[in-house]
């Protein structure tokens, strides 16, 4: 354990990380935003789910540096008098949860399908990849919208609000798995012909063991890169769906929902209700994207 840690810190990956200040900054931003939203209960100035903590009288207050602003509400308040900073922290929690689990599920589906398709070949591969092709013909956001629409249509109305987050996660992961499947499949097809796999065959190892013990670890590199970039995309997709009104309901708002709600006040001059959640979203996504970009270049042996 200590040995492999030492190896990591002496390695090229750590070095390329440390030598780029922007990447370090992005990592710090990501970590602190994740931390702040996971522990929103302790970090946020107010609990937005506690009705006693906000007051309609405080509604639509601007950020503290503006006229009428109060230091108690750093980034102002929304129409119901909720502190915008607190709603952002709680909202990021929803956004990150949805993003994170969607990526995990998409990854699991994609890796499994990709491994099976790439290793078996033949008609299994043909069928799986045709499905992937058809799905790839449509933008992920459209698939997510459709899946969301269909599931919501199947669910009874009263359950929709409670299950919204799960529906979202299902919709996003069902629209994202194709990327992993295609990448894993093509790497599997490359790995399958390599001699270490043939050596495992000669030893007599059964197929599942070869797939999971030998091939899987060797195709994980690109998967991790996609996962980081997809995390950013999943957060954006969640926000977009919520913005379009088919995501999480305003009762447990995500960043997208906050922006949607605030959008109505844009023309009457209360810009902070939209702009601050929007900025939080952009900063989060940008930080994750910078990490993904760096990881892709650092793991690409051709660029060294």
């Amino acid at each position: 354990m200590i040995d492999s840690l030492r190896r990591f810190f002496a390695g090229d990956l750590w070095w390329s990380f440390r030598s780029s200040p922007i990447v370090v900054l992005a990592a710090m931003t990501t970590v602190s935003m994740v931390f702040a939203s996971v522990f929103a209960n302790f970090v946020a100035p107010y609990d937005i789910f506690d009705l006693t903590q906000f007051n309609l009288m405080d509604g639509l207050k601007p950020p503290f540096w503006m006229e009428r602003g109060e230091i108690g509400f750093l980034l102002g308040t929304d129409d119901q008098g909720r502190d915008v900073l607190s709603t952002i922290l709680y909202g990021s929690r929803v956004s990150l949860t949805v993003g994170f689990f969607s990526v995990i599920f998409a990854m699991l589906i994609g890796i499994f399908v990709g491994l099976v398709a790439g290793y078996s070949g033949g008609w299994i591969d043909a069928v799986l990849m045709r499905i992937a092709d058809v799905q790839l013909s449509f933008p992920a956001i459209l698939i997510a919208l459709l899946v969301d629409g269909i599931i919501s249509g199947l669910l009874p109305d009263q359950a929709q609000g409670e299950l919204a987050i799960y529906v979202l996660i299902a919709a996003i992961s069902l629209s994202f798995w194709v990327q992993y499947a295609r990448t894993v499949r093509s790497s599997t097809m490359v790995e399958r012909t390599k001699e270490y796999v043939q050596a495992a065959q000669v030893i007599g190892l059964p197929k599942p063991l070869i797939l999971f013990r030998h091939i899987l670890p060797n195709v994980m590199g690109p998967v991790l890169v996609i996962a980081t970039i997809q995390l950013a995309l999943a957060i954006i997709t969640e926000a977009t769906l919520s913005f379009l009104g088919v995501g999480v309901p305003p009762t447990s708002p995500s960043l997208g929902t906050l922006i949607r709600v605030g959008n109505d006040y844009l023309f009457s001059g209360e810009w902070w209700i939209t702009v601050f959640p929007g900025l939080a979203l952009v900063i989060l996504v940008l930080a994750v994207n910078i990490l993904g970009d760096w990881l892709r270049d650092a793991l690409n042996p051709k660029l060294r």
Partner: peptide
Amino acid sequence: LIGISLPTFLIGIFLIL
């Protein structure tokens, strides 16, 4: 990089603003 990190609807909102 900023471009791919900006959700489409936010670009719209900022432009409108």
